[in-house]
């Protein structure tokens, strides 16, 4: 009974049919809603489609069983930004900003002057709440990021779910040991445990899915810390 009224009905059918997803999630406007209601009253196909899509919508509304950890995740992003800013600040920094990143340009906006201006911009409103949530100052300077504990050859960030045992196993495999960390941003400083080359330790680390980030530390030419 649905297509008896010829091409007018068929056109209306096509157009209403494509509105149904937004009808069921209630984002259509009043006129579109009316249009769907009127059409559905006379079109069995759309009526059935509407019923099916209502059930799809209903099912999709269920909250995924997911532990949202925005602040912890943000800290790991900050660690990545720290490292890439430190690298772009260092004169001998290699061109790739971050592991696996091949985004266009790869340029880092690390202008400290711009930062100082922009921090003032967002001083009002929600910002206060944000600081309360993050608790400690999350902004880290480039200078702070380049201070290194003695012996450090690699900086790494691990998955939040890694167990101590897994971490130990992973470090043994890569012949590394922790010399400091984690920082508030989750960064560990690692030193070599043997005479194995740093890059092979690095490769070993990067093979693990639990390693979020691993970077060789840029050598400090004037460093007095080296053995």
């Amino acid at each position: 009974m649905s297509h008896q009224r010829g091409s007018d009905h068929s056109l209306e059918h096509d157009e209403v049919s494509s509105l149904i997803p937004w009808y069921v999630n209630d984002t259509v406007d009043v006129h579109e809603r009316q249009r769907v209601d009127i059409h559905v009253a006379t079109c069995a196909v759309c009526r059935e489609d509407l019923a099916v899509q209502n059930r799809i919508f209903e099912g999709m509304e269920a909250q995924p069983a997911l532990d949202y950890m925005p602040v912890a995740s943000l800290k790991r992003l900050q660690a990545r930004l720290d490292v890439s800013q430190a690298r772009s600040a260092a004169p001998q920094a290699p061109p790739e900003p971050v592991r696996r990143e091949t985004w266009r340009g790869g340029r880092m906006a690390a202008s400290v002057g711009a930062l100082a201006i922009a921090i003032g911009v967002l001083a009002a409103g929600r910002w206060v709440q944000f600081e309360a949530r993050v608790k400690e100052p999350s902004y880290r300077t480039v200078t702070k990021a380049t201070l290194r504990p003695p012996g450090e050859v690699i900086r790494a960030v691990f998955s939040p779910t890694i167990t101590l045992e897994e971490l130990q196993h992973l470090l043994d495999e890569a012949q590394l040991k922790i010399v400091s960390g984690p920082t508030e941003a989750g960064v560990y400083s690692l030193a070599s445990n043997s005479s194995v080359a740093v890059h092979s330790s690095l490769q070993q680390l990067r093979r693990h899915s639990a390693v979020r980030f691993a970077e060789e530390t840029v050598p400090e030419p004037e460093s007095g810390n080296l053995p």
């Binding site: 909250q63 995924p64 997911l66 949202y68 925005p70 602040v71 995740s73 943000l74 992003l77 900050q78 930004l81 906006a109 690390a110 202008s111 400290v112 711009a114 930062l115 201006i117 922009a118 921090i119 911009v121 967002l122 929600r126 910002w127 944000f130 949530r133 993050v134 999350s138 902004y139």
Partner: peptide, 26 residues
């Protein structure tokens, strides 16, 4: 502000989008 290099603005944006993106990516 992010385009001007403001990391705090990036963090604010991040926290504003985190939940929406996490659910989407789930």
């Amino acid at each position: 502000a992010v385009a001007a290099g403001d990391r705090r603005a990036l963090e604010e944006l991040y926290l504003g989008y985190h939940r929406r993106l996490a659910r989407f990516l789930s």
